[in-house]
Simulated scan of single mutants.
Amino acid sequence: MATIGIIIADMFEDVEYTEPANAFKKAGHQIVPIGLEKGKTVRGKRDKTPVKIDKGLDEVSPYDFDAILIPGGYSPDILRGEDKAVEFIKVFFNSGKPIFAICHGPQLLITAHVLDGKKVTGWKSIIQDIKNSGAEYINQEVVVDDNLISSRGPRDLSAFIKASLKRLE
């Protein structure tokens, strides 16, 4: 089974973490919350869902994981301001292993300059950012382009999880 890193900071969209994480665990995969500081508890923006960071970015390698989940909310915007998070995602993306990005998740990929020529979806407020990164914005519930699986937001979670689990088979 796969080891899935979940790169996350405070103010993440609760259901964009809890629903995929629960589905991955139910399917037998291991999840590892990765953040800026090991042992810190980050919280969701709506329900204040607590997530304890198992591994800090300074102690992991992109090669430690089979896939990465980037939940949305404000978390990706916080992470994109951290060089170590941007470099981690850039190296991971270029490894060809799957990245699952939902809602504002593509913000971290935009800052890592890895979306040029890709087909991507995301939350409506970042559509122009996606286009400015050189990607083609596709307005549908889930978009699969090579190693990148993206969705627009919480209402698309079912399709996002289904596509993500299929990629992990």
Rank of each mutant, 00 (worst) to 15 (best):
K26H: 12
A27I: 05
H29P: 06
H29A: 04
Q30L: 15
Q30W: 10
Q30H: 14
Q30Y: 11
I31C: 00
P33S: 03
P33F: 02
I34V: 13
G35V: 11
G35D: 08
E37A: 07
K38M: 13
K38Q: 15
G39N: 11
G39H: 10
T41C: 13
V42C: 08
R43D: 05
G44H: 07
G44T: 07
D47F: 11
K48L: 13
K48M: 09
T49W: 13
T49P: 06
T49L: 10
P50D: 06
P50I: 00
V51P: 05
K52W: 09
I53F: 12
I53S: 06
D54R: 03
D54C: 03
G56R: 02
G56A: 09
L57E: 10
L57T: 07
L57G: 05
L57S: 10
D58T: 12
D58G: 09
D58Q: 10
D58H: 11
V60K: 07
V60S: 06
V60M: 10
S61N: 15
P62K: 07
Y63M: 15
D64M: 13
D64Y: 15
F65A: 05
A67T: 12
L69T: 12
I70V: 15
P71I: 11
Y74N: 12
D77W: 04
I78A: 06
I78W: 11
R80H: 08
G81M: 15
E82V: 13
D83E: 15
D83T: 14
K84L: 14
V86N: 03
E87M: 08
F88N: 06
F88H: 01
I89A: 02
I89T: 04
K90Y: 09
K90E: 12
K90S: 11
F92A: 02
F93S: 03
N94T: 03
S95A: 13
S95D: 14
K97Y: 10
P98Q: 01
I99Q: 00
F100P: 03
F100I: 12
A101R: 06
A101G: 12
I102E: 04
C103Q: 07
H104N: 07
H104F: 07
G105T: 08
G105M: 06
G105E: 07
L109C: 01
I110M: 02
A112T: 04
A112Y: 04
A112C: 06
V114G: 00
V114T: 03
V114L: 05
D116L: 08
D116T: 08
G117Q: 01
K119N: 08
V120I: 11
T121A: 04
T121M: 01
G122I: 08
G122E: 07
W123D: 02
K124D: 15
S125K: 09
I127C: 02
I127D: 05
I127P: 00
I127T: 13
Q128T: 14
Q128K: 15
D129Y: 10
I130D: 01
I130V: 09
N132C: 07
S133K: 01
G134V: 12
A135M: 04
E136G: 00
E136D: 05
I138H: 01
I138V: 14
N139W: 14
N139T: 09
Q140K: 12
E141C: 08
V142N: 01
V142S: 00
V142Y: 00
V143H: 01
V143W: 01
D146T: 03
D146G: 05
D146P: 00
N147Q: 14
L148I: 04
S151G: 13
S151W: 04
R152T: 03
G153H: 06
G153P: 12
P154C: 02
